[in-house]
């Protein structure tokens, strides 16, 4: 296992080293990340990267294939636009975690901030705790599992993202509706939670049947003049 020390080094140097070591097939532990921004951006090879502490904004953004574990909290834009791979944060995540991801799995073991999964296209986001205001906003695909509660405007203006919520939904966003979970959904929840969350965190969550499913009501997909009222409210 390779070890990188962040102190006294620029982010550019640290990231170049992470990319080089990944290519060489090394598992990497990054020491003293100091919550600095843009750590582990654009990791395009598979392999394991552990940040031994908190990271700042945009950590593991634009990533394709690596497995990133953060042993602390993460700032805004965690795993933004990820294509594939896994990002696991043991603490909390800031706003816009998993924004616009196209694949992969983002797991927040604590709480996540506002606009979690905004405009996600595909992939999976799991938040063990609660998520912030307008999470799931304009989600176009993929799945989002929130173990705890959601803040207001959950799932606003979504396309085809499917969300599951284990706790209370403060308020559904525009055109977000509750739907019945199928057996397949319950199976998916069981499998995903077992795979990505440790048993200690799973113990706080309801069983699959206790999760609420939230999808798009599809009222805002196409503009119809006769539904002007719906639009007026959404805008």
């Amino acid at each position: 296992m390779a070890e990188l020390i962040c102190e006294e080094r620029t982010i550019r140097e640290i990231n170049a080293d992470i990319r080089r070591l990944l290519k060489e097939g090394e598992a990497i532990t990054v020491r003293s990340p100091g919550a600095r921004h843009n750590l582990g951006v654009a990791l395009l090879a598979s392999g394991e990267v552990v940040f031994d502490g908190s990271v700042g904004y945009y950590c593991a953004g634009l990533m394709d294939g690596a497995t990133v574990r953060i042993k602390g909290s993460a700032g805004w834009g965690l795993a933004e636009s990820m294509l594939s791979g896994e990002v696991i944060v043991e603490g909390n995540a800031g706003n816009s975690a998993g924004a616009a991801i196209r694949g992969g799995a983002l797991v927040v073991q604590g709480d996540s901030g506002a606009r979690t999964g905004v405009s996600m296209k595909n992939g999976l986001i799991i938040v063990s705790g609660s998520c912030g205001y307008m999470s799931g906003f304009m989600g176009q695909g993929g799945k989002m599992i929130i173990g705890g509660d959601t803040a207001e405007a959950f799932g606003d203006s979504m396309y085809e993202t499917i969300c599951f919520v284990g706790g209370e939904i403060a308020d559904l966003g525009n055109d977000a509706i509750l739907a019945e979970s199928s057996d397949e959904d319950k199976q998916f929840l069981d499998t995903s939670l077992a795979r990505y969350l440790p048993a200690s965190l799973r113990a706080n969550l309801p069983d699959a049947a206790g999760f609420k499913k939230v999808v798009s009501g599809r009222k805002l997909w196409n503009f119809k003049k006769s539904e002007w009222k719906t639009w007026e409210q959404a805008l």
Binding site: G53, S54, S73, G91, N92, D111, A114, G132, A151, E152
Partner: peptide
Amino acid sequence: EFRVREAGA
């Protein structure tokens, strides 16, 4: 290190 949280809306 200590646990930090982004304040909500």
